[in-house]
Design a protein around this nucleic acid. Structure first.
Lengths: 260, 260
DNA sequence: CGCCACTTTGAGTAGTGTCAATGCTGGTGG
DNA sequence: CCACCAGCATTGACACTACTCAAAGTGGCG
């Protein structure tokens, strides 16, 4: 096979060298197909026959799982560069449902080609392994959020996770999720999410017009301390000496969180 | 390279054809080292320099993440055949801590060899991708458990997850975790886990001597219905007509769960 | 303009967490 | 051999978070 076909410069689909890993995969022999989705469009549905997998190039996509009883949960948001629909190769169906949140574009690649490519090109294999590891890492972080954080901590870390990079100065962020969807992602109810965000707004930590749209972080430092669960009374202080000032007084009415 | 080196029959470390995928990886050129761990032994610690990765051959290993404040959480249990310590390849440190729960044996493989192998042997690459996908799948299932289940449902599904195969008749299971560890895995407290299990015992759903050791499932059907959250009042009935018999009566004192 | 979906707010409560005390078990040393 | 001890598990009382149900507010779109 002609090695040059794998060269980034030969990529017909991916701009420049952005998403180099992604490029390697989706630009292979030309069997990938570019495709666009409107907000709300279904890329694939859990349980339906898996034929293609996707590489997200632009936009945001939510991944949902459905329980037997109809309860559904968002298990993650896909960001550009991420793979979508990569199941265990033996699995004949998609494990989850993928729905576009914003206008999104993807490279669509037949599954059997994936196997081909992995078997013939080691660079792509390594890329794939890296991407899966990143996804695993993200999922584990979410695991910690769901298992060990309070509602306030959950919402705070969610908002922070919207910042594309850690030390971004930009604080005006797109919020492509409804309250319902945020609640589903964080394992909360709509009402709780709404209340926490209303409280953040009152305390001037964030500024958010209602509903889907945008959100602005006003006080990033406080948000970070809330997200990391500074000042909790519980497990955190197990081996360290207990707070000498006695048990925390009943909290003031106006705020869901203690003073900072 | 000699293709026969990859043959399962040539595997010096792995018995028979058990864990065929695992075999492919850990039996490569002989740079894997067999190693044994006692219960409680640390395979690797989060944040320490990642040099090797592991393939678990026997025993059970817990994977833990540590938050900034010292709160820790178990993010999963590793079963034989599973990879341990495979980070994003760029990451210079382990993302989590791995501790043996039972007497365990692993194949230990230097990281740079992993890259070599992936680049030179496509069958191994595919195996690796499959294994990572399985891990992702397991992690997502846990995500759903943490985000959308009640304490009773969590404990019930945990107990069921101890069964090695879905339709195993064997109901006497090893329970290598303390109550503390179960709580950490499920995002609960020790007390809640203890209470739920005590309740299951009273209702003759399980039989468990106290503490680390074994657990026996007496009524698998009930356990499964509890795990799947049959009879809940909430989200489940959103689009279906609401229960006509009115809101659920206050539950009886003696049991944490409604009648079945 | 009115409908519809989404969000916000409020009141009340179920379910877990927290704290504290007690029980059980296996190991150790007198 | 038994008493003691340390560690884990259990149980109870209580507090508080987050859920439930209900109702009103807001905004977009035909």
């Amino acid at each position: 096979m002609d090695e040059s076909l794998w060269d980034l410069a030969a990529c017909l689909l991916c701009d420049a060298q952005l998403y180099s890993r992604l490029a390697l995969i989706c630009c292979s022999y030309g069997f990938s197909r570019m495709q666009s989705f409107e907000p709300g469009a279904v890329l694939f549905r859990a349980g339906s026959a898996r034929k293609d997998f996707f590489v997200l190039r632009q936009g945001q996509v939510k991944l949902m799982m459905m329980a037997a009883d109809g309860r559904e949960q968002i298990i993650g948001l896909a960001v550009p560069g991420q793979l979508l629909g990569v199941t265990t190769l033996e699995d004949p169906v998609y494990p989850c449902t993928a729905i576009a949140l914003t206008q999104s574009s993807v490279c669509r690649i037949p599954y059997h080609e994936l196997v081909n490519v992995v078997e013939t090109n080691p660079r792509v294999s390594l890329s794939l392994v890296r991407l899966l590891n990143q996804e695993l890492k993200r999922t584990r972080a979410l695991l910690h959020t769901l298992g060990r954080k309070t509602a306030v901590e959950k919402v705070a870390s969610f908002i922070l996770s919207l910042k594309p990079t850690r030390d971004q100065v930009e604080t005006d962020l797109a919020l492509p999720l409804s309250r319902d969807e945020i609640a589903s992602l964080l394992g909360l109810t709509v009402e709780t999410v709404s209340r926490v965000m209303a409280d953040f707004r009152r305390r001037r930590i964030i500024d958010a017009p209602r509903g889907r749209g945008r959100i602005r972080i006003l006080d990033c430092a406080v948000l970070e301390s809330l997200a990391d669960g500074v000042n909790r009374s519980s497990h955190a202080t197990r081996e360290r000496p207990r707070r000498p000032e006695g048990r925390r007084a009943s909290r003031e009415q106006s705020s869901l969180v203690p003073d900072h």
